[in-house]
Write a protein that binds this DNA or RNA. Structure first.
Lengths: 243, 243
DNA sequence: CACTATCGGATAGTAGCACTATCCACTATC
DNA sequence: GATAGTGGATAGTGCTACTATCCGATAGTG
């Protein structure tokens, strides 16, 4: 197909496609004549992947290039694939490595992961992000968030246990990398959206337990509260306004 | 304190503080003379909150202003607070409301939430983000992600059940809003970091089950696989390389 | 008191990002 | 053979988030 069809089917404007070609996000089409090139279905799929990473995942063009460049490179190990996807996804923390507060937060992040028994490289980019959260929480005087760490660890691990094995089972490295990228990036957006929706649901249906009324302050061990049923519309006394 | 001390203690350069004052992120200090103002501890705390939202949460200056403006406004209901925090956090989806594909994805998002029995407003911004994920997954031909939706729902709900009630228990609206903002934004960053670390851990310790070897393709119902122990360094056969 | 540093406030400038527009010589197609 | 479209190059745009500079006034110091 020519560039116009690529643009129509992907919804990406032609100048933007040319921009992605220049930036190396999209491999060039097969040159037919001096000013004619032919694009295949894989170009269309790549374009859709680029848009998904950019718009849903919020990746920058540079981060997207990092991800898709691994798709084009001959072969790389699982570890590199995962590391690449993580490096593209984590929010860059502008931290001074000499700042003692930062070093302390970073050290605590490593210590916490070690306590969990998780097998993680010391230079994992997610450790920086975790340290950034630790540092911000400490500066804001929010000890509640850190008290709930085990909950987050459990949620993350349960998700990882279903997210990771399917990608490890893939034989083709390119396919594996694509699965890692999509799973990591779209999975994060999906989880974030679902968490927000759950927040709204709990916020709308929660009421304080009579025997243990609402506490005046937000201590490290808050009351559990009573929530609406976990699942199933049948058990919900409140008809959902959605739809 | 004067602006220099504010800058020193917060780590934010003076021109940036002036910029935040202009943009209305930071309330002005108490004017002493024609060119002297005094700042309090609350200004320092606000500055730290701004930096946390910006650097850890990745919020734009405009979104940060939306959040902190609610802190300054007299009083607003819980619902507005949660809605504000969500609107600031969700990734903007540039979707054409007339696109039938988009409408279908959006409709499926609403239907799924309704099936869960969750009480969510139809105009919740997270529904747009969820629809964006649905649409991207459909375009990429990734049906696996959608097959795992119940896992994400469970993870999101369990998190929300511990994250939301403590903020609802707060009496002071300003304090409540601050807790909602910090919990929503920092919690998302924390969850994302922990999920990435868990990915790395599972990726490093997983091996296919002998009786059911690695499947050649990534079907909608992948093999469960065998993972390292959930918790506790004692049970972990692999000494963690961290530290 | 003089002198220097700093202040609040205003205006202007900058760097980076992600496109977007225009131009060109050429070519496919009606 | 007119017209629209093509690949490739270069330049320009709009936005965001700061930074820099200047000003007259004032605080602190000796």
């Amino acid at each position: 197909m020519r560039i116009a069809e690529l643009s129509d089917r992907s919804g990406v404007p032609i100048p933007t496609i040319k921009y992605y070609l220049r930036e190396g996000l999209l491999p060039p089409g097969e040159l037919i004549g001096r000013n004619q090139a032919r694009y295949q279905e894989r170009h269309l799929h790549r374009l859709r992947l680029i848009r998904a990473l950019r718009e849903v995942g919020g990746l920058s063009v540079a981060a997207t290039r990092e991800v898709v460049s691994v798709l084009d490179s001959p072969a790389s190990g699982r570890h590199e694939q995962v590391g690449m996807a993580h490096r593209a996804v984590v929010r860059r923390v502008a931290a001074d490595p000499d700042d003692p507060q930062w070093r302390d937060a970073r050290r605590r992040a490593e210590a916490w992961v070690r306590e969990l028994g998780w097998r993680v490289e010391p230079d994992a980019p997610a450790l920086d992000q975790l340290a950034g959260v630790f540092l911000a929480a400490a500066r804001l005087g929010d000890e509640w968030l850190l008290a709930q760490l085990p909950r987050y660890a459990e949620a993350g691990l349960r998700l990882a246990e279903v997210e990771v094995p399917p990608t490890l089972a893939l034989a083709d490295p390119a396919e594996s990398m694509a699965a890692v990228a999509v799973g990591t990036v779209l999975g994060e957006a999906l989880l974030a959206a679902v968490r927000l929706l759950a927040h709204e649901h709990v916020s709308a249906t929660w009421r304080p337990t009579p025997e243990r009324p609402a506490a005046p302050d937000r201590s490290a061990t808050p009351p559990a509260g009573e929530c609406a049923p976990r699942n199933g519309a049948d058990a919900d006394p409140h008809p959902p306004p959605v739809g």
